[in-house]
């Protein structure tokens, strides 16, 4: 039989294990709470041949495995976040035993405390700004001379450059405008078009930390910006647990 380790999902405060009854951990594992002072780590057993160093290296390359682990991790984080302030851990944080988990908590105790204070009563919203798909330049207009075609093509490339710069500028303005009235904001790397499957180029991939009660106001702010700016598409999603804002200083 394979040895087991402890997979750490999230850190919170004041959690009773029975509050997570009904939420399964990875591979159906039972969720336990490991405490250090007032910090509570939510963990479950995982097999080390799958989640040990070698296993992780191998498994992280497989999208099915990655998706299954990411979805389960996310569902546990949601369950924890529905009960109290939650600092989600990065995927695949594994300790050999509860003693290791406690040591991990103790090492970053003050920082974890600060992060939990920062995210308590707040949720994350995602906002993406997308440029429209590039219009196809007609290459075969009837009766156009070669010189005329080249001239138009050059003009069209120049237009596109100017247009791209304007759209980037607009995305920056949207980012700034939405930050107003939120607790914190950050820009994530815009996502590759091949991954999103969306038609347009992503100009902005932003995350905002918003007070629980301010969610509807934030959404209507997005809607009003979209109404002002038809030249881009502004997509708002959430609320999610505060993944992007539970960050320890290194």
């Amino acid at each position: 039989m394979s040895e087991s380790g402890r997979y750490l999902y999230a850190v919170t405060r004041g959690l009773e294990p029975q509050q997570l009854a009904g939420t399964p951990g990875l591979d159906g594992g039972h969720l336990d709470v490991v405490e250090h002072l007032d910090l509570c780590a939510v963990v479950s057993d995982v097999a080390l041949d799958e989640y040990g160093e070698e296993g992780l290296r191998r498994n992280l390359e497989h999208l099915d495995w990655l998706e299954r682990v990411a979805r389960t991790h996310d569902s546990v984080v949601h369950a924890v976040a529905s009960v109290g302030p939650t600092a989600p851990l990065r995927l695949a944080t594994v300790y050999l035993d509860d003693e290791g988990v406690r040591r991990g908590l103790a090492e970053r105790c003050a920082e974890l405390d600060r992060v939990l204070g920062q995210v308590a009563g707040r949720l994350e919203w995602s906002v993406k700004v997308l440029a429209p798909a590039t219009p196809v330049v007609s290459t075969a207009e009837r009766g156009m001379s070669g010189a005329e075609y080249l001239r138009r093509k050059k003009a069209s490339a120049e237009d596109k450059e100017i247009n791209d710069a304007l759209l980037m500028d607009l995305a920056d303005k949207v980012y700034e405008a939405l930050a107003d009235g939120t607790v914190a904001s950050r820009r994530l790397q815009p996502q590759d078009q091949r991954l999103t499957g969306l038609a347009g180029t992503m100009l902005l991939n932003a995350a905002y930390l918003v007070q629980d009660d301010d969610g509807p106001a934030f959404q209507s702010h997005v809607k009003s910006l979209q109404a002002e700016h038809h030249e881009v598409s502004i997509e708002c999603q959430g609320p999610w647990p505060p993944y992007s804002f539970a960050v320890l200083e290194q």
Partner: peptide
């Protein structure tokens, strides 16, 4: 993103 703790693995 998210909290990074140095795990045993």
């Amino acid at each position: 993103t998210g909290v990074v703790l140095a795990g045993d693995i």
